[in-house]
Design a protein around this nucleic acid. Structure first.
Length: 427
RNA sequence: GGAGAGAUGGCAGAGCGGUUGAAUGCACCGGUCUUGAAAACCGGCAAGGUAGCGAUACCUUCCAGGGUUCGAAUCCCUGUCUCUCCGCCA
């Protein structure tokens, strides 16, 4: 959400920021509503003030046993006029709110201009792309050869975009989650957290999924299934005022994530790349405004460490203006190398996304901190990042570790979690 | 699911129709004292908004939404959540 005072003071700057998001100027229409509302508000406040004064006088007169009928008439007269003005004021406030809630975050200056992912900026590539003496297979073939990845069964139980893992692959999923959580908690100081997987409308609005992206979400009753643990983790600080001394707050969680994938019909239909349900280890940081830029770099490197420890080659991309998400000021994507994609030619695929949301989410959810020295109360900055998407990591392990015979060599970091260094093909 | 109790400032906790935006304690901030610290003492300290250059004034908010009243933290209704007891249960 945007600061209305910023729009009042610097409407041109605001419109320019919208422009970068391919949105037409809005400051004029927003400020019109805003000034109408404030005029109404001033009028209401004058009446309320008079009402309060007269009511106190009535009280004083009653205490003396004097007659107060004229004053009561006056107050009733004022009161009869207030509700109408209030309802007008309320509808303007709602109009303003609904406009502001649907506008995306202002991009950081450093975000490169661009229409789509093709214009994202390569920051660095890390690790060696494996060379194969044979045409590498994709994870679907590898998983089915292991006899432990069954898409037909997923379809039978739930429908398209579901899978059933079994045996060592099911264990691998659990091993990866444990390995990631252990790394983030022990090495990087994140607090392991197990949040609800269903949340209310308020939480979804706080992080920015609602009101604009309802169609991407699954809903049951009056609750929504989380599309990412970012939602419950970030909303932990909603409506709170924490002392600056408690910052930064760093949390990590392993959860299932649910996405309707409404906008991606036909894309990535093969394999486990894009499922309705997937698991992810998420990192969330709540930080002082001065620290959020550095925290984004730190968080990104936490996610990178996982890839490095798993010996997976990847690259870091800085998202361009057209590819940066609604709530983010700035985003780094980590893309892992998947040698089995594109008929065995291989390609990079997103496996993590680390974003600095600045005060955008904090303002929506009223997450603030108090500077105990100055007494100032300000909005915190929030960041979130995947560390990592577990299903896609599993894919990467299979495709990068594959041998000619269909066996899968596991990275050293996982040996103790898997009690083996290799998955053996069943066929 | 049944029966009761409750929801007040960062926390604990008074208040139960008007002078209460809210006692008191803790925490926090400033100061006195001290070589320094602790203790003690003094002072400050809710949030959001509107108007104003500003001192400041005013409005709203005591879980949320309705209602009663000239006036509601206080009374009534609904919802949400919490606690206690009983039942059921992974």
């Amino acid at each position: 959400m945007h600061d209305i005072r910023f729009i009042r003071e610097r409407p041109d700057e605001f419109d320019a920021a919208l422009q970068r998001r391919q949105i037409a100027p809005m400051s004029r229409s927003i400020l019109k509503i805003d000034s109408d509302r404030r005029a109404l508000q001033a009028q209401i406040q004058d009446m309320q003030s008079r009402r309060n004064i007269v009511s106190k006088e009535i009280g004083a007169l009653k205490a003396l046993g004097s007659d107060s009928d004229t004053l009561i008439t006056e107050v009733n007269n004022i009161k009869s006029k207030i509700p109408d003005l209030e309802s007008k004021e309320l509808s303007l406030a709602k109009a303003l709110d609904s406009q502001l809630l649907e506008l995306p975050n202002i991009l950081n200056q450093s975000v490169p201009a661009g229409d789509n992912e093709a214009q994202n900026q390569l920051i660095r590539a890390v690790g060696n792309i494996p060379k194969f003496t044979f045409t590498p297979k994709d994870h679907v073939v590898l998983g089915e050869n292991l006899g432990q990845m069954n898409f037909a069964l997923g379809a039978k139980l739930a429908g398209a975009r579901f899978v059933v893992l079994s045996g060592q692959l099911a264990q691998l999923e659990r091993a990866l989650a444990a390995f990631m959580l252990d790394t983030h908690t022990k090495k990087f100081g994140y607090t392991e957290t197990l949040p609800p997987a269903l949340v209310n409308r308020k939480a979804m609005t706080g992080t920015g999924q609602l009101p604009k992206f309802e169609e991407d979400l699954y809903k049951t009753g009056d609750k929504w299934l989380i599309p990412t643990a970012e939602v419950p983790l970030t909303n932990i600080v909603a409506d709170e005022i924490t002392d600056n001394t408690a910052l930064p707050i760093r949390m990590t969680a392993y959860t299932q994530c649910f996405r309707s994938e409404a906008g991606s019909a036909g894309r990535d239909t093969r394999g486990m790349i894009r499922q309705h349900q997937f698991s992810k280890v998420e990192m969330v940081s709540i930080v002082h405004p001065d620290e959020s830029s550095a925290e984004l770099e730190r968080m990104t490197s936490c996610a990178e460490t996982i890839l490095q420890l798993l010996e997976l080659p990847y690259r870091v991309m800085k998202l361009c203006s057209g590819d940066t998400g609604f709530s983010a000021e700035q985003t780094y994507d980590l893309e892992v190398w998947l040698p089995g994609q594109d008929e065995g030619r291989g390609m990079y695929r997103e496996i993590s996304s680390c974003s600095n949301c600045g005060p955008f989410q904090a303002r929506r959810m009223k997450a603030r901190f108090r500077d105990t020295k100055t007494g100032d109360i300000r909005f915190v900055h929030t960041l979130n990042g995947s560390g990592l998407a577990v299903g896609r990591t599993l894919i990467a392990i299979l495709e990068n570790g594959q041998q000619k015979d269909g066996n899968i060599l596991l990275p050293k970091s996982l040996h103790c979690y898997m009690d083996t260094d290799c998955l053996l093909a069943a066929v």
